[in-house]
Design a protein around this nucleic acid. Structure first.
Length: 139
DNA sequence: GCCAACGTTGGC
DNA sequence: GCCAACGTTGGC
């Protein structure tokens, strides 16, 4: 099972809204970057991902499940991009802030640290375990 | 609000 | 096909 990190601005789409969408989940649209698209296409049903709040909060706040694989994004006029469906699994006991991630040597290679602008990122198994431990969660 | 990093666009 | 200009993102 692969792990991912999905970024969203709370003012656009927040964790609370994701939770409110419930078990049925929602589509994750709006990706307009080819590298991010590549990651979306690699996602499998059942993969897990971190939900990251950018800008004001700058922290990983929850865990989501991929519940539907890549399909066309109807909001993309060019027809080049697609999206997946995700559902909230649980909020982290302790959000893991960007500052904490940067302060953790084992997370020095995280994409979030090195290419912060990428909105859909892969997370290695080791990074997943470290972040979950920092959040007070079992991996 | 500023600015660095990065992606995209468009002129050549 | 190169590269400068421009727009956007997101951390600070």
């Amino acid at each position: 099972m692969a792990h991912w990190l999905l970024k969203s601005e709370p003012s656009t789409w927040s964790w609370d809204q994701q939770v409110a969408a419930g078990a049925k989940g929602t589509f994750w649209n709006g990706v307009r970057n080819h590298l991010a698209k590549k990651h979306l296409m690699a996602m499998q049903k059942g993969d897990r991902g971190f939900f990251y709040h950018s800008n004001e909060e700058r922290a990983i706040v929850g865990v989501i499940d991929i519940i539907r694989t890549y399909y066309p994004d109807h909001t993309d006029e060019t027809g080049k991009f697609g999206m997946v469906d995700v559902k909230a699994v649980k909020a982290l006991k302790k959000p893991v802030t960007l500052a904490a991630i940067k302060a953790e040597p084992r997370l020095a290679d995280m994409v979030l640290v090195n290419n912060s602008r990428l909105s859909v990122q892969p997370v290695t198994d080791e990074e997943w375990a470290v972040v979950m431990a920092m959040a007070g969660e079992k991996a």
